[in-house]
Nucleic acid binder design. Sequence first.
DNA 1: TGATGATTCGTTGTGCACAACTTGTCGGGG
DNA 2: CCCCGACAAGTTGTGCACAACGAATCATCA
Lengths: 235, 235
Amino acid sequence: MTCETPATGGSARDRFERMHDEIRTRICLLDYAPGTRLSEEALAAELGTSRTPLRRVLARLESEGLLQSVHGVGTFVTDVDLRELVQTFRVRLELAELIGRLDPVAPSAALLAEFRVLQARSKTLRDDPDPRRFAQINMDFFIALMRLTANQPLREMSERLYFRTTRIWLKSIFASLIDLKDEVEVFDREIDDILRAVELGDLQAAALIRRAHISMSFERMRKAAAGVTGAAVTP
Amino acid sequence: MTCETPATGGSARDRFERMHDEIRTRICLLDYAPGTRLSEEALAAELGTSRTPLRRVLARLESEGLLQSVHGVGTFVTDVDLRELVQTFRVRLELAELIGRLDPVAPSAALLAEFRVLQARSKTLRDDPDPRRFAQINMDFFIALMRLTANQPLREMSERLYFRTTRIWLKSIFASLIDLKDEVEVFDREIDDILRAVELGDLQAAALIRRAHISMSFERMRKAAAGVTGAAVTP
DNA sequence: TGATGATTCGTTGTGCACAACTTGTCGGGG
DNA sequence: CCCCGACAAGTTGTGCACAACGAATCATCA
């Protein structure tokens, strides 16, 4: 089933990173929904390794707030409560703006090409909306945006917060709290607008547009969730 | 020799945190200077545990940028090059200001008392300047400041960046690049000023003062280092 | 004498067996 | 019928032995 040479090859560090990214993607794409219990033994077997190196990966994901291990019980995918979500988004907004102000770098031709590919992928998404593909493209777009700053610590912090909260947004889509087609439409415009600013070399403008979209995205999510929890309280 | 019950007691998580904080403190106080090799076996023995749980701690410290493990060679305390230092301080400045703007909380009586104790400790430092004690008080003051915001992610990011760079500042003091007595004097004034703002309930002002001091502290350090590297280039 | 290759040593990474711990179940007693 | 305690199953945490790897050393040869 899995195709991307999950097990052998490369140094120990490479194997660690591969496993880490793989599991993180599964969590962020809701293949492992919040509350899911992960079997160390089964996962280790699937990834073609033993518990020891896998536990290293799980510990890292726990420090990133995506997992939580409890002795004698299991390791579970975390959920994000509203309070934490609000706090995280507040910081994400500020960091998004900093991307344009702190150590911005003119994008290489390769990066520009990548942006255009993402733009094209976004267009195909409009014809055939799919939550999972949407989330994947969204993630790739985020990673591309990070390459607009040379400030490594800023990148790190931004990524940390992004990966911690993005699955909640995806969850809202799966739960039909927010409309998939609308979000796809908005996202497509976001790429267009940001790409225009990037091509102009105005990274600060690009960052401001990004900040605005994160803010609005969160606001839509918050309003939808408030409508639900306000109407139906524990069925 | 070690007195603070390093080994047994509490849950696995508690033991992890104790070991983590202990080693982190040693690194930040330059008990383990950059470049030092840490022996897993010796450290495990000293902390009264085995390599397995210790390696968990070391992996965490590596993800925090304080250590680096190389297969077949050893685990070493990292150094911070100028580029990384500059980038980190740029972000630290912004985060310091955010402490006063994002989810500020009125300090409890206990926290205020703690600030006053720190103020007193700072005064004693003026009479008997000692780099290590200075660094310790500075660290405690930083941790107290973090408690002025309820925004957990913001705290986390700020701490991460603080612990990654503070030892470079201490290194400059030990190397007499910057004058200990001057720094103590400046720090004492910083506490006074910030405490005044905090007692007034103006956390935003406190954060701005803090930001200014971080900025100036870095500037003094940068200038001193530039003077040295400009004069004596690799003997 | 200098260079080169095998070797030895010490270190980190991995796999496995067992200990520590929690949860759910089953039996007995009030 | 309910409650409580012991037990069993399953999970994460720990310790240990060995494999994988890198660097320094020493012997050998040109």
